[in-house]
Design a binder for these strands. Structure first.
Lengths: 199, 199
DNA sequence: GGCAGCATGTTAACACTGTTCTCATCCAGA
DNA sequence: TCTGGATGAGAACAGTGTTAACATGCTGCC
């Protein structure tokens, strides 16, 4: 909010950061529809053309926002394993993953909605891969026999579950009262894939 | 393509259907960016205002497109279980599910991307639920002990896997050569959740 | 058969958007 | 101190979604 608002100088001082921060707020509140270049410039208190000194495109701006989202995301998921017994870490992280999606639904959607060309923007790609890694290593540790498949499976599961909850596709389960279900499902999944193959 | 193109009359004849069909093509080819009211009208050979006689909004048009997508989706997934042994049906459907997502990535994204207000449009909601059902009953059959959880788990898994493949988030796995992996993962998942609890 | 009414089309306009010019202002280093 | 480059403003352009007012064609009623 009030990181730095000098506001009446000709040069803003740190426009690029201000743009990304405000864009993030705009996105979180109003979704991708509410995130427009002009509206953004208005909020920051700057002319409509100014952002183009810092971002080639609207798309470039969006990529930066998504990258910021991935950083926050990574912190959250990674932090969830602190002080947790090794065998429960995967479950804890999975839970944190889904809860992040539920807390910032529109941001989460943007991060994975992409026609934001995740392939061309290196920063974005790195941020996304980093987030993937933190869950992948936990999954691999839990199922050393087939670490690759375990990672994919875990990631797919939490990602899919998050999307379903966001869409309220799960009959009778609203995002509000979903916590117990999340707990049960993520733990159950982690357990099944965690234990060595059951013969 | 050539269902009916009279083209030079003042009244089109069946504009609504033509709009949805063309919008679907437009979406499949160019993604949600390429799907604009004016461009759509142009393609159909009609004035820019004409679509508004049949759809209140751009959003309403998009909802109709998504509903059509869900219908096609459902046919595909449902059809995959024909002539397959009962115990393999869930796996076959899961495979068909992911392959649909890979064949029509932009359509699939739209169907689940929604800020298309899946809650307000009854037709769309029904179409989506119908698609959900067909996989859910197969999952429930495979794991009668906890049919609810099994359904959610299966759905989440295939949905998440689809999204990951679309994003090329899976390192080294491009959509092109993904088929063996899909086979292995879906079968493995179906099996694990299919067999009654181990231990 | 002729005619009213309604559904469906058109044209013109509005407000808004992303984007790009050109010009103004500030700041940093020679 | 002065100059050049980075960063801002302002005006303009093409394109968009949407609406209002008008035109056309089809259908059912006398």
């Amino acid at each position: 909010m009030s990181t730095s608002e000098p506001s009446d100088r000709y040069h803003h001082g740190d426009l690029r950061r201000a743009l990304v921060e405000t864009a993030l707020e705009l996105l979180i509140e109003g979704g991708t529809e509410a995130l427009g270049m002009r509206e953004l410039a208005r909020r920051v208190g700057v002319s409509a053309a100014a952002p183009y000194r810092h971002f080639r495109d609207k798309q470039a701006l969006i990529q930066a926002v998504a990258a910021a989202g991935f950083a926050l995301f990574r912190e959250t998921v990674d932090g969830a394993k602190e002080g947790v017994a090794a065998e429960d870490q995967l479950g804890a992280m999975a839970e944190a993953y889904v809860q992040f999606a539920l807390r910032y639904p529109r941001l989460y959607r943007l991060m994975f909605s992409s026609e934001l060309g995740r392939f061309e923007d290196k920063d974005l790609r790195r941020a996304a891969d980093a987030a993937y890694e933190s869950l992948a290593v936990a999954a691999a540790k839990a199922d050393p026999d087939s670490p690759g498949e375990a990672a994919i499976s875990a990631w797919a599961f939490v990602h899919g579950l998050s999307m379903l909850l966001l869409d309220e596709q799960l009959l009778g389960v609203s995002a509000a009262n979903a916590e117990p279900l999340i707990r049960a499902l993520t733990r159950r999944h982690a357990q099944r894939f965690g234990k060595p193959h059951p013969a």
